[in-house]
Design a protein around this nucleic acid. Structure first.
Length: 474
DNA sequence: AATATTCTCAACCGCACACCC
DNA sequence: CGGGTGTGCGGTTGAGAATAT
């Protein structure tokens, strides 16, 4: 019944290679070269099958193999090539000097694939997951058509939705995102064009001119389609903590402004709002967004915002979503977040629900001006003083804001305890957990009186995401 | 500290294809 | 043409490590 595998022959060893075996193989190949794998082990004095010897050589012992973590650029290349080539690991490896197909395949399956899923990107098609888009469409339709809609229930946020926060959010919400209507379909179309473009490039110029791809905005879109989402899309403002469960009440539909429907649609190219009634604790929190904290919103500021509801002078404060991610705490009602729960059957799927919400294409030199460009109405809130702490990436907790002289790490303990920090702490150079170094930053701190507006950014796969914009009273 | 669970990745498996005789 | 052999490829496995409970 078929050919007998060579390794089934009696007396042949299987399993991990010893250092002695490695040396025998290396010595033999250095003297005689590789090839003729079937007779090689016998001549080299190895009790291995030829196939095992070949794999050991090509995947591990070959002198030109690059060991260690994948660089950011290598990650990018893998994603770009996978988008075009699919699971053609050998073809991808051919364009990554020093990397083997096996290594790339493993890295894809254990790191990149999961990361794309968390970002709401289908790792097979490299497009946003259509199941999420469809649900969003249904939601949008329902919001338009049903006056009896139980919105909190639909959004899965009913039991822990703070009505005050909703009012605040409503006030903050503006028409800024009107231009993003249909953005999803536009980008899907564009993405298809980009795929065709790169496919043509590949066919016409082998090997791939990676520099060309990297410098191409189209290729970037292909790599990270969510970058198509415009900066006006969303921010994630955390709600206030609640002193008791009784504060959580159902929000009636009539409390919501008409444009909330636009909001839900425009800001939800992926599954922002899904609910299957799962308990919050059933949700697996994304790496991005486990930000557990207890911010306090200054009542005066809240009033200011509420009063500005009809204020044309604050047209663009981009309050994107009421969604924040749940804490892993078993006491969610004490947490600060309004929450959505994904209707997901697998951990990966659940993991991805809260991602892809807050994606911006940020300039590297993001500073106060940059943030104000994205959130122009912040200028109305921060005219007293603007503090630009610069990019704090890779700086240690405990650093002091260079201009403010304020140890904001101490003031914002929740940041310290967030998963991002924990990820950073565990990501020492000797730790190969994740090839990509932690690319988070707290780039901006705007202050007015005793109010801080903190932007927490995270970069992943060349996407910069604002994962949190919060207001803190200090 | 002990145990359970999850993750990682080197190695294996089986198939496909090219080449040779 | 057909069988044998060599090689390459992609999917899967499982031991050990890491992490969570």
């Amino acid at each position: 019944m078929g050919k007998v595998p060579c390794c089934d022959k009696e007396g042949l060893k299987k399993g991990p290679w010893t250092a002695e075996e490695d040396q025998k193989l290396i010595d033999y190949i250095q003297k005689h070269g590789h090839g003729r794998w079937r007779i090689l082990p016998k001549n080299a004095g190895l009790k291995r099958c030829g196939k095992s010897c070949r794999l050991r050589w090509t995947n591990y012992l070959r002198p030109d193999i690059k060991r260690g973590r994948f660089s950011f650029e290598e990650e990018e290349t893998i994603i770009q090539l996978h988008c075009v080539l699919g699971n053609k690991w050998s073809a991808i490896a051919a364009r990554l000097p020093g990397r083997t197909d096996n290594e790339i395949k493993n890295y894809w399956n254990t790191h990149i694939r999961k990361r794309l899923l968390r970002m709401g990107i289908d790792p097979v098609t490299h497009t946003p997951r259509l199941d999420l888009l469809e649900l969003t469409s249904v939601l949008n339709s329902s919001l338009y058509n049903s006056s009896q809609l139980n919105l909190p229930s639909l959004l899965g946020i009913g039991p822990i939705l703070n009505p005050n926060m909703l009012s605040l959010a409503t006030a903050l919400f503006s028409s800024q995102c009107r231009n993003t209507q249909n953005i999803t379909s536009q980008y899907l179309h564009q993405n298809q064009l980009d795929q065709n473009l790169v496919q043509n490039q590949l066919q016409s110029t082998q090997p791939v001119q990676l520099n060309t791809i990297n410098s191409s905005s189209q290729a970037n879109q292909l790599q990270c389609p969510v970058q198509e989402i415009q900066p006006c899309a969303t921010s994630n403002i955390m709600s206030t903590p609640f002193s008791s469960e009784s504060q959580f009440t159902q929000v009636k539909m009539e409390q919501l402004p008409p444009n909330l429907t636009n909001f839900s649609y425009q800001n939800s190219p992926t599954k922002l709002w899904q609910n299957n009634g799962e308990h919050p604790n059933d949700f697996a929190v994304s790496d991005y967004s486990l930000l557990k904290f207890d911010p306090v919103i200054d009542p005066q500021f809240e009033n200011q915002i509420l009063q500005s509801n009809n204020d044309e002078s604050i047209p663009n404060f981009s309050f994107g979503t009421l969604i924040s991610t749940p804490s892993t705490s078993p006491t969610p009602l004490n947490s600060s977040s309004t929450t959505t729960y994904a209707n997901c059957s697998t951990e990966d799927e659940r993991d991805s629900y809260c991602s892809n919400i807050l994606l911006y294409d940020m300039p590297n030199s993001l500073n106060a001006s940059g943030v104000l460009h994205i959130f122009p109405s912040l200028s109305n809130l921060t005219h007293s003083r603007k503090l630009d702490l610069g990019r704090t990436q890779n700086e240690e907790p405990g650093m002091k804001g260079s201009q403010s002289g304020v140890d904001f790490w101490t003031m914002i303990p929740w940041i310290k305890s967030s998963s991002l920090f924990r990820a950073k702490a565990s990501n020492s150079p000797s730790n190969d957990d994740d090839a990509a170094p932690p690319r988070w930053s707290i780039s901006m701190l705007l202050e007015k009186n005793n109010l801080l507006c903190v932007f927490v950014f995270v970069e992943d796969l060349r996407i910069r995401a604002v994962i949190c914009v919060c207001l803190l009273r200090i």
